[in-house]
């Protein structure tokens, strides 16, 4: 795997208009996804333990 920074700068050069940097967005939604996963498994664990 290439380091991510390379990926982005390459893209920005090749295709400056298309994939603008949305790194913050990606991290934000992944945090959101982690929240969903953790919460769901907590309640699932309650369901199993009861």
């Amino acid at each position: 795997m290439k380091p991510e920074r390379d990926n982005i700068s390459r893209e920005t050069m090749v295709n400056p208009k298309k994939d603008n940097t949305l790194k913050g967005t990606l991290i934000s939604v992944l945090l959101l996804g982690a929240f969903i996963l953790i919460s769901w498994f907590i309640v699932f664990a309650i369901f199993i333990s009861r």
Partner: peptide, 24 residues
């Protein structure tokens, strides 16, 4: 319709989680 690369990653992650829940 073209979808941003990061959005694809997010959709795969999100929809993947939903599928995981459903399988369980």
């Amino acid at each position: 319709m073209r979808i941003h690369k990061y959005e694809k990653i997010w959709l795969i992650f999100g929809v993947g989680s939903l599928i995981l829940f459903l399988i369980i």
